[in-house]
Nucleic acid binder design. Structure first.
Lengths: 302, 302
DNA sequence: TTCAGGCATAAGCCCTCCTTATGGGCCGTG
DNA sequence: CACGGCCCATAAGGAGGGCTTATGCCTGAA
């Protein structure tokens, strides 16, 4: 469609040439403008000549020691400068805006069990970065939603995204030291049978009982009450209300300060893990890099 | 200077990509925008992807039946549209402005002897074209002065300009019929010796006297009074005050209506001529073309 | 007169950007 | 439910725009 093309071309000037014109008009010098634009004087000369032919009139008068704008050039220069200022502003705004807000899509579990406790340190480290959490269990599609980076749980084999493993979604019983003390300490798995089990219907309990050699039937006898989020169960555990089976990695802080204890090294593992994922194209964006490095360091450093 | 270049590039976006972005943002469709810009959908997709990588954030969310602007895209779109409107306006203004005013540099002689009588018909034929005359005898340099087209006298061999010969700068005596009648008509060159010679010091008289076989000494005896412009001498001649030697082509109208007569076919010619000149690059500009065609037709048609 | 600064021009090459071709996702309809 | 249409993404390939280097010209200053 050469016709359409030529029509369009005549409506709007060659942009590269216009950019050069703007610089030349500001400096009133081909050489200086070329320097500012990072190109040679010859290139600037070429572009101006091109533009003059398109406009149909000279834009500069070549005087010995300097150039001056022609009437046509004077008409064009102010508006062009303003347009470029606008363009530059918009671009910069989009760029910095892109750096200023980080949209994290995260699983509910991860948000309440881990991010809630740790995000503060990220904010402190990057005060200029506003974090917007988008909490849902959908598998976000970076092409369709305005999301920068996400936490997913699963096998880690998603196409078209860059992934970093955060930790395995393993599970093991946890309880408060006080509760353990009520039965003289928890020495072996069977001791758990003498304590309240939180959410005994959880599939994880079943797996763990099997791995630990405990009778699965015991679980069925217990009163079932699913709390949903691990954080709630953990709180109940801290309060001494019973023993949940949870992902230890979520509660490193509680383990560290003694509010909770992990009585056994035995952990269940269904092969799933938590992953940090983002589009490969944005791997090196400052905010992506900042979040990635922070979260990996945070997990490694504890 | 790769450093400078990359710095610059990061300050201002890739312009072609921005132009595509503007169209896409307006249509909210890659395909339609590509159509408007006279390129393929693939090209639009490519440019948007490029821009998104530069900005560091997606600008559009790809939804099934249509695309929508992301937050970053929304921030950018209005300013970008405005900037392009500005650019388009400035460009159009420069373009049309370039077509609206025609600067003609002309020799004093030509202006008063020919243009003054004829320019009116050009104005009538091109009412939207304003003509600005720049009258001087300098040899204008199109690179240094804001001139569109010029009339020059000389050999016609100037480098770097396009030339059209208007007519030879020949010369021959002219006089009013009444003055001729006072001596019973002018039949042969020698008859002129019985009449007043206007500006007898003019080199043209000398040349013509020699060509006509008249005694050159006669000229020296006459009272010298140079009037300068041929138009003044012609007026004096019409008033019957004497005989000037002038370029016949300037006075076709006077010859046609009988105010002046050219008694002899003998014309002097020093090889010079009047020429229309302009930069080759502007050969096809509407206003250049209009003036050229008009002046050539005007001279041919008489 | 020579030198320095600045623009124009020519030749040549690289890389951007566009095209064609193809595939995938989602929608509607028969 | 399958099929065709619409729209966008991607890959490969090619043309030409636009940059660089090299050189020349002009002018004003020393």
């Amino acid at each position: 469609m050469p016709e359409l093309k030529s029509r369009q071309v005549s409506q709007l000037p060659p942009l590269q040439a216009i950019r050069v014109f703007e610089a030349v008009a500001r400096h009133l010098s081909f050489t200086k403008a070329a320097g500012e634009l990072g190109m040679t004087q010859a290139a600037a000369s070429y572009q101006i000549k091109l533009l003059e032919e398109r406009v149909g009139a000279p834009l500069f008068l070549r005087r010995p020691k300097q150039i001056v704008l022609t009437e046509a050039g004077q008409r064009m220069a102010p508006a062009v400068s303003e347009a470029f200022a606008l363009l530059g502003g918009a671009y910069a705004a989009a760029r910095s805006g892109a750096d200023g807000v980080l949209c994290v899509s995260t699983l509910l579990t991860f948000a309440s069990n881990w991010l809630a406790q740790h995000l503060g340190s990220f904010q402190v480290a990057h005060p200029s970065l506003a974090v917007r959490l988008d909490t849902s269990n959908r598998l976000v599609d970076f092409a369709r939603e305005d999301i920068d980076i996400a936490i997913r749980s699963g096998g880690g084999n998603w196409p078209g995204v860059e992934v970093h493993k955060l930790f395995n979604a393993d599970f093991t019983p946890m309880l408060s030291p006080k509760l353990a003390a009520t039965i003289g300490g928890v020495k072996e798995p069977a001791d758990l049978l003498r304590l309240p089990i939180l959410d005994p219907g959880d599939i994880w309990w079943r797996d763990w009982f099997i791995a630990a050699g405990l009778p699965v039937e015991e679980l069925a006898k217990r009163p079932g009450s699913s709390m949903g989020a691990q954080a709630y169960e953990a709180n109940a555990a801290i309060a001494g209300q019973g023993v949940p089976i949870v992902t230890a990695a979520f509660f490193k802080a509680e383990l560290a300060d003694g509010r909770l204890i992990q009585p056994f090294d035995l952990v269940g593992d269904d092969g799933h893990a938590y992953w940090l994922v983002y589009p490969p194209a944005r791997r090196n964006l400052p905010k992506i890099r900042a979040f990635r490095e922070w979260i990996l360091a945070e997990l490694a450093g504890q």
